[in-house]
Amino acid sequence: MTIILTNDDGIDADGIRALQQAVSGESIIVAPNQQYSGCGHQVTTHKGIKLEKRSTTEYALDGTPADCTRMAITQIATNTKLVLSGINAGGNLGTDVYISGTVAAVREAAIHGIPGIAISHWIKKPLVIDWQVATNWTSRVLTDLLSRPLPPGSFWNVNLPHLEPEQPEPKIVLCQPSIDPLPVDFLMEGDNYYYQGKYSDRDRTPGTDVDVCFGGDIAVTLIRL
């Protein structure tokens, strides 16, 4: 089956290469030609979209992650059976799904009846992600989730934890998405306000994806349209 790989960090990001290594089977990369983090489900309808064919299996799009999914399933691989998005450098937990371009790419797939999995990696700054470890964890997750039935109009959202090298291998935990808000705080400098909410300070309601991921396991949530 044809698998589309995309992200919101851009086609040259390390995360999409780590995702590619985790996938078995035919895959095609259709990803933004630049950074689109936090763009949500933005789509381009008011101007043309330039598509650069880098190879027979790799395309860079001058558009958002949701644009990438739209272009992939209608113009590049109409036989697409699965859309994978990530691996995002940073968590997309709980209510982040409304903000995340990574998640929007698979939400767009679900709208068209195509299964999808969004994969992100929580970062404790200034941590540098070990992408080989992320690939190994993602391979485990894909094997698990692709064996599970996925209800129509839904998709999987996965968040990998930050672990120190000596910590135990994380478990895959199916859980509920947090509905707690992100910390909202701003610093005023002159006429400008700068967001300074700390991601790690968000509420950890027990049993939610935030709690599971912050606790050191792989958080998997089923998101419905």
Rank of each mutant, 00 (worst) to 15 (best):
A105S: 13
P115H: 09
P126I: 00
G94H: 01
S100G: 05
G91W: 01
L93N: 00
Q132Y: 12
W131L: 10
K124Y: 06
E108M: 14
G91H: 00
I129E: 02
V97S: 10
S100F: 01
D96I: 03
G113E: 04
V128N: 12
V97I: 14
A110M: 08
V97K: 13
A110Q: 06
W122I: 08
G113D: 04
I114H: 10
K124L: 09
R107K: 15
V106M: 04
I123N: 02
K125Y: 08
T135S: 13
L127D: 14
A134R: 02
A118H: 05
R107F: 14
I129K: 02
G94R: 02
I117T: 08
G116D: 09
W131V: 10
A110F: 09
G113L: 01
N92L: 11
D130M: 06
V106C: 09
K124I: 15
V103M: 00
G101A: 10
V106W: 06
E108R: 13
T135Y: 07
I129G: 00
G91E: 05
G91I: 07
P115T: 07
A134C: 13
S100M: 01
E108L: 10
Q132W: 11
D96Y: 11
L93C: 03
W137I: 04
N136S: 15
W122T: 08
W131M: 10
K125D: 07
A134W: 01
I114D: 08
I111L: 13
A134K: 01
G101F: 04
V103R: 02
W122C: 07
D130Y: 02
V106G: 06
T135D: 11
S100E: 00
I119S: 01
T102I: 07
I123T: 06
D130H: 07
I114C: 09
D96H: 04
V97C: 12
A105M: 09
A118V: 01
K125S: 11
D130I: 04
A104F: 03
V97Q: 10
L127R: 11
